[in-house]
């Protein structure tokens, strides 16, 4: 019997999922979005969260916040409304409890989402995180990679979206944060504006190193039986697969307007969605609501990426972003 030669293998290199976001290298572009991943604990119990590119932790304010009254959640077609209202334990508890706990289970730079009622609040949270991380740095590498400035939360009366819908106010918050940190500053933008590029440009001019687009769309549901709004807060932020085209459009517009990287966020639920976002020019992506419906959503998307990249003949994800920016 003639011994067959070893099967001929076509030399293939694994698709390259690595990206760089504001100078920080990531093994893949998939981050969990702020407000859908807590401070990582719940998901670390389910899978090794080190496989994430990174994640943006829960919007953090100077003082603890309970948030809005319940109901805070409403079902929608291909999406959901939330009016949580930035419930968080406050920056001091985040530094003393959440970050040390996170260090046990996550060994990559995390994105810190900061929020407040006035520019000084944002500056205070940023400064405290910056100082805590610098002290931390002496022992090991920095835990916080980026500061994400939440100027787009629709669920708080003061701060949040109030800043993100006015170019001057947005710039004032970015400047306040910029002065307190050497880390890359990312402005998370609201889609609830006439022209998102105007806000994006204002943030860039004020010193932002990157943009996240988009936060939730302001929405509302009414209960037919009670004839009252479903949400105790009347209105809330709409997210989920239904908003993906809106997010993609915003990313596309921003990438053609600003010279800083844009993180695509809104309705991403598959590896295909990730590619589409990056073809629009996104340098990285955030997965939000999908985590709430399927706690393994990010893991699934990351594991699917190489296969889907091969399917569409993509060798390296960074090429998609670069090509989109050339056009």
């Amino acid at each position: 019997m003639v011994r067959e030669t070893a099967p001929r293998t076509v030399p293939t290199t694994a698709p390259d999922t690595a990206v760089t976001l504001c100078g920080i290298e990531m093994t893949n572009p998939v981050m969990a979005a702020s407000g859908t991943f807590g401070y990582g604990r719940e998901f670390a119990d389910l899978y090794d969260i080190d496989l994430l590119g990174s994640f943006s932790f829960k919007g953090t304010t100077p003082k603890p916040r309970f948030g809005n009254e319940t109901p805070r959640i409403a079902e929608c077609t291909e999406g959901m409304l939330n009016s949580v209202g930035l419930q968080n334990p406050g920056v001091d508890a985040v530094i003393s409890e959440e970050l040390p706990a996170l260090a046990e289970v996550f060994h990559k730079p995390v994105m810190a989402n900061v929020c407040g009622g006035c520019p000084e609040d944002y500056a205070e949270v940023t400064e405290k995180l910056e100082i805590a991380d610098a002290q931390n740095e002496a022992q090991r590498r920095p835990q916080i990679g980026w500061i994400e400035v939440n100027i787009s939360c629709p669920n708080v009366k003061s701060g949040g979206m109030v800043f993100g819908t006015d170019p001057k106010a947005a710039a004032s918050v970015i400047r306040a944060v910029r002065q307190k940190t050497k880390k890359p500053v990312i402005a998370k933008l609201s889609p609830n504006v006439t022209d998102i590029t105007e806000i994006g440009r204002a943030c860039e001019a004020a010193g932002a190193d990157g943009l996240t687009a988009i936060n939730t769309l302001l929405g509302m549901r009414i209960d037919l039986k009670s004839r009252r709004p479903v949400l105790a807060n009347t209105m809330g932020g709409f997210s989920g697969p239904a908003v993906f085209p809106v997010a993609l459009r915003a990313v596309y517009q921003l990438c053609r307007t600003v010279d800083i990287p844009v993180i695509g966020c809104g309705g991403i639920a598959s590896a295909e969605n990730v590619l589409e976002m990056m073809m629009a020019g996104a340098a990285a992506v955030q997965v939000g609501s999908a985590n709430l419906v399927d706690p393994y959503a990010c893991k699934g998307i990351i594991e699917e990426l190489p296969r889907v990249m091969k399917q569409y003949g993509i060798k390296a994800l960074q090429e998609l972003t670069a090509q989109a920016q050339v056009r």
């Binding site: 859908t36 991943f37 807590g38 998901f43 419930q87 709430l292």
Partner: peptide, 8 residues
């Protein structure tokens, strides 16, 4: 499962 803070 504790991620969204919707039912606080």
């Amino acid at each position: 499962f504790g991620a969204c803070m919707g039912c606080s």
